[in-house]
Nucleic acid binder design. Sequence first.
DNA 1: CGCACAGTTGATCACCGTCAATGAAAGTGG
DNA 2: CCACTTTCATTGACGGTGATCAACTGTGCG
Lengths: 242, 242
Amino acid sequence: MSPSFPKSYKVACSNCNLRELCMPMGLSEAELRYIDEMVGSRRKVPRGDPLFTHGDPFKALYAIRTGFFKTTVTAQDGRDQVTGFQMAGEVVGLDGIVHDRHTCDAIALEDSEVCVMPYDELEALSREVTALQNHVHKIMSREIVRDQSMMLLLGSMRAEERLAAFLLNLVQRLHARGFSPLELVLRMTREEIGSYLGLKLETVSRMFSKFAEQGIVEVRQRHVRILDTVALQQLVSQHHPE
Amino acid sequence: MSPSFPKSYKVACSNCNLRELCMPMGLSEAELRYIDEMVGSRRKVPRGDPLFTHGDPFKALYAIRTGFFKTTVTAQDGRDQVTGFQMAGEVVGLDGIVHDRHTCDAIALEDSEVCVMPYDELEALSREVTALQNHVHKIMSREIVRDQSMMLLLGSMRAEERLAAFLLNLVQRLHARGFSPLELVLRMTREEIGSYLGLKLETVSRMFSKFAEQGIVEVRQRHVRILDTVALQQLVSQHHPE
DNA sequence: CGCACAGTTGATCACCGTCAATGAAAGTGG
DNA sequence: CCACTTTCATTGACGGTGATCAACTGTGCG
């Protein structure tokens, strides 16, 4: 590894601490430099602001550097549903590719910063760098698999199972980013959790209370401490008997 | 257009009648020939048989030439859920890219035939043919958007809204393939519809009966005739008031 | 300090799941 | 070709889960 200082304050992909999360492995120096070049700019998104909204022309994918986002889809009648929560190292914007317009909203749940990857440049570069092409495909495929497991959750799990799965998924992802696997601070409201899980906010609140009563978690507002991971896992995998 | 006879009985992409469904537009002769070459083989899948199942090593994407498929995901505890129904011109197998293994099952609901597109060859060729690269990305993005609208359906719609949306989606896709927009033959059981929509088969049956009573559809087993498309559309877009 | 918002908890109810019985269709083998 | 079995579909009665409505509490920010 031959270190080279970045030309400016701007952090380059080549020495970004999220590299193993959002970059393919085993790139050459030259390839990394190309990618640095493609990821032209950063963009700060203050809490509550949209990174993009449905209808916006699609121009780029965004890798989250810091912060936390939710994505929501909106039905014709105006009601919307949270389709995901994204954290550092994850990519948003894939929905826009089909129709050259975004079909969902991405809203920052805390002050955030994203790396802008102009789509045409990304396509061009991934024609040159096989590892990047493969990486992009894997990211899209991962999203498809994730969405399908959400369909399973929404279609066949009960409230407590959904919330248990949600908590486990969150801590697992946070753990992969160096945080505690037993403690987390929720960045979203009960209503947003409910929307994501196909439940009403009151139900989410009730399930939290229930878990707390059973000694599975400790809940103080948005601060959650997991006391019994195994119990949560059993809740998820023990669907109501056939 | 300079016609050239295929070397064998094997139908080539270049003169497949599904071309506009599964191929990018505006390809050159040479590019089309490359694609013909990549789509090496066909595979027949008899009704009830799997095209692939979860755990199978991922080697190829499959374009459906004839027939009808369902895809299902399976939870740890063994319960599964239908995540989609696919018809001619649609692509299955995208789930396998992330982990080099399929994560869902694809089962033929009628005798079917698919075009096998070996994934490494597809990747290689889409590095050469920009239109193909773009096409593959759009297909994946479309799948993501579709899955997210299913999440909306499963998370926020009631039984009758779900079934209405399902029927409208089916006839719309069939219509795009030259079939009647008012009549369809379901290729799946009530249970499979229910699994897809997050409902029990009895509920699906009841909703069919209810629609029939209201004069919205005519149902005889798997044969469905739509009498009032507008009513169905209104059902979908009129979520229960907030 | 007060106001808006987020969260909790209780009472009631509706939708849909469950259980069960029946009927229709389709495939099977004599 | 017709009994037989199996699968699929319909319908009814009942109950449970989670939605709805409502009141109250806690928290953070201006």
